[in-house]
Nucleic acid binder design. Sequence first.
RNA 1: GGUCCGGUAGCUCAGCUGGAUAGAGCAGCAGCCUUCUAAGCUGCGGGUCGUGGGUUCGAAUCCCGCCCGGAUCACCA
Length: 593
Amino acid sequence: MIQQLLTEKSAKAIELLFGVKPAAEQLTLQRTIINFRNQGDFSLVVFPLLKLSRKSPEETAKLIGEKLLEIAQEVESYSVIKGFLNLRVKPSYWINFLRNNFSVENFGQHEKKSDVPVVVEFSSPNTNKPLHLGHIRNNLLGWSVSRILEANGQKVIKVNLVNDRGIHICKSMLAWKLFGNNATPESTGMKGDKFVGDFYVLFDKKFKQEVAHLQQNGYTEDEAANHSNLMAEARQMLISWEHKDPETRDLWTKMNSWVYNGFDQTYKRLGIEFDKTYYESETYLLGKELVEEGLKKGVLYKKNDNSVWIDLTSDGLDEKLLLRADGTSVYMTQDLGTAQLRYDEFKPSALMYVVGNEQNYHFDVLKLVLKKMGNEWADSIFHLSYGMVELPEGKMKSREGTVVDADDLIDEMINTAKQTTIELGKIEDFNSNEALNLYKTVGLGALKYFILKVDPKKNMVFNPAESIDFNGNTGPFIQYTYARIKSVLRKAEGLQIDFGKTDEMHQRELSLAILNYSYPQIVAQAAQEHAPSVVANFLFELAKEYNQFYHDLTILKEENDDKRSLRLALSKLTSITLKNGMNLLGIEVPERM
RNA sequence: GGUCCGGUAGCUCAGCUGGAUAGAGCAGCAGCCUUCUAAGCUGCGGGUCGUGGGUUCGAAUCCCGCCCGGAUCACCA
């Protein structure tokens, strides 16, 4: 890596000049800022070195620059501006890099690191309502982070944990039973998850009516809720379910299968799949044994009513319930159990959970409880906490009907892509199938990029009133750049790429080469930070750089064979980098658009 | 109230392991297609980086106080 090499040689130069080896933190080598790119490619900051040199910044920089010309064959020239030593790397270095990499299809893929997998859990929907924009962010993040880890040579197991049981599921079941008239998704022509979701909403509506009615008869709000027949029936249904009552179980199986059918369609459209799906109905009893164990070890304790707790106050958290007085488990108990299950099953190097930041506390507790019970592997638990997607006026609220439905949004994006494409007159020679594929690719590309370009940690704002852009820092911009390059490459087929004795490069060529060169480092950084946004922002920069290159220089019409070869190689490599990078975001890239 | 996260241009976001004159995109204005795809390129206007202190040769970036916004502190999941 050239940065590392230049840093090492600089250290050497300093040692030779001033007789002292500089500390690592005294050596900052950065990409030369854009305004001074004509002066060099990388810059060494000399201020921290003045203590060693005991000379002015300018003089120090000059001395180091001269010395580097002697001892670093990669350095072509230097210039000094204020306290910055700008170094120009010999073009032959980049040419050599291009020669070796310009047609490497898996450019950016790191070598396999180990067979020990990382387990990534994401999506984890409830089966009582359809997926919405928040789920989309979760799914895209989980998918993309998995791809990024894979690109870094790690083995990844993508798992989904479906929340398919509980009182909320019983609510939609009960509503269907009481008010559904045996309707089905087939009989109504509805998507299964939407169909079931409507009954969940219906339950809530009927329940509120009942409560309001009771309140009119003199009950307080709390009393009314407690006297609700509907709620009592839902609770009874949960008990029946837990007793494996056949009729209840049949209804449950039937309605869940409708939901899964709907989810599968959405996952497929998003291009997402899992290696393994867990169901809470099968795992919700796990964790009780762990609690027994914890009691024996004295890590947990029982209160008078027989409920089981852990005291985390000494760690700055609170007391946390793990088993109710009646011995039933809570969310935390289940999660302890599934974590243990997953650890036993895969012996992974890390257990990753892609879950919204509203659950930060939950995961702090989860990790701590496991740790206190003596599980060293608890340290490998990583909560990939992401921010909420909000509307300009704040949170999405189902009550106010402001929740942005996943399918609707996808439809809308594909539709906009269609309109835009037709307006621009891009598809005269496309057959209908090609055209449909293009709309899908571009529409989803816009949506996915829009979401993934934002730092996962941060909340983000989505304004339904403005459609997601197709120009500027967007997915379609990058896709367009790719298609543009492919068009050039198609026309260049048969041309020999052979850059014999090219020894000088245009600034645009240089920048493009260096950006591509840094892509593998970007992939590593994205993995380290668990941030697809790192890749997204890089790709935008690269696409922008290519468009400038494309605008300023000719490629096919260049008559000098060496220059044309260099530009074709740069084009080819850029297309590969764009494609591979977009792939890490789960975004497809069209050959023409 | 405790804990955690955030506050950068009208809007959406980069930059945050300290380094050069704080960057993009959108929106606005002005240009560039008989030339490899104009979903592109170029230019203009737009900033007390919430605020007050501190550390440093140097602070949007690190530390402390305060203000504002959000999340969370459930025998819901």
